[in-house]
Design a protein around this nucleic acid. Structure first.
Length: 252
DNA sequence: CGGTATAAGCACC
DNA sequence: TGGTGCTTATACC
């Protein structure tokens, strides 16, 4: 793998330009001597070129975060190391009916945290060295802290996720969510809450973006207050996509 | 308490 | 194939 340099992104970039201003030339080190659990010792993050997604109250930043070789390796490690929830933990209740979620899901995070949506409470499994390393790298570069990651695995284009907002009480209000995409690129669609359905109050165009292998999408406040997002079916796509959304949850 | 929203699928087009 | 509208009984605001 390539040699990597981690560059931080300072908070005062926001709203003006999204290129990192501070440099940090240290290479991320294995703090726990966890080579056996995590084959990845370095990550590529070469001053990512951020692109700002703008809309009415839409505030997101997107970049290709990991180089292809690094993203390939992380993807491989995910497939080797991760296991996913089953049974009741893999169901949601909507409009009075229980459904198996059309994808696989698991969460890791600080002890005691969990995430509840649609009558489904996903408890955090402990951080693994592998996941902690990814989390720390993203924190380092974005300047935001996270204590929880929700991982979704879409085995092919038939797996999907419906429209929703990440507006649960479990989430620290106003804190950004960092979404790392690995594997099969997929369309990701934002729709404004007031612009949905037959009786829409206004007509705001949806914002679509194809989330690339190794990319990071930062969903900043107040995006999730006003915009729904979804990962629609794309039936012709045959390959696996893994998504990690790093979050800050309220401690209870 | 009443009002409101829904991370799902399905039935159209 | 993909986008839209509808569902429905809890939950939780």
């Amino acid at each position: 793998m390539d040699k990597f340099v981690i560059r931080k992104r300072s908070h005062d970039d926001e709203g003006i330009d999204h290129k990192p201003k501070r440099k940090c030339s240290e290479t991320l080190k294995d703090e726990n001597g966890d080579k056996e659990d995590c084959a990845i010792s370095n990550f590529v993050v070469k001053s990512p070129a951020w692109r700002h997604l703008k809309g009415q109250n839409l505030n997101c930043d997107y970049c290709v975060f990991f180089s292809k070789s690094c993203a390939d390796e992380i993807f491989k490690e995910c497939e080797k190391l991760l296991t996913y929830n089953e049974g009741q933990l893999a169901k949601v209740n909507l409009f009075g009916k229980w459904h198996d979620i059309p994808r696989k899901q698991v969460a890791h995070g600080d002890e005691g945290l969990s995430y509840t949506f649609s009558n489904n409470t996903v408890p955090a499994r402990p951080w693994t060295p592998f996941l902690k390393k990814i989390k720390d790298t993203i924190s380092e570069v974005t300047g935001h802290e996270f204590n929880f990651v929700l991982i979704n695995r879409y085995k092919d284009g038939k797996d999907h996720m419906g429209e929703h907002r990440d507006d649960e009480k479990d989430l620290v209000q106003g804190h950004p969510i960092a979404s790392l995409s690995l594997g099969q690129p997929r369309d990701f669609i934002f729709k404004h809450a007031d612009s949905r359905g037959k009786n829409a109050k206004c007509n705001i165009d949806p914002v679509k973006i194809e989330l690339q292998h190794g990319s990071l999408l930062l969903m900043n406040h107040p995006t999730n207050t006003f915009w729904y997002h979804s990962l629609p079916q794309r039936k012709k796509l045959l390959n696996v996509r893994i998504n990690m959304t790093f979050r800050k949850m309220v401690k209870k």
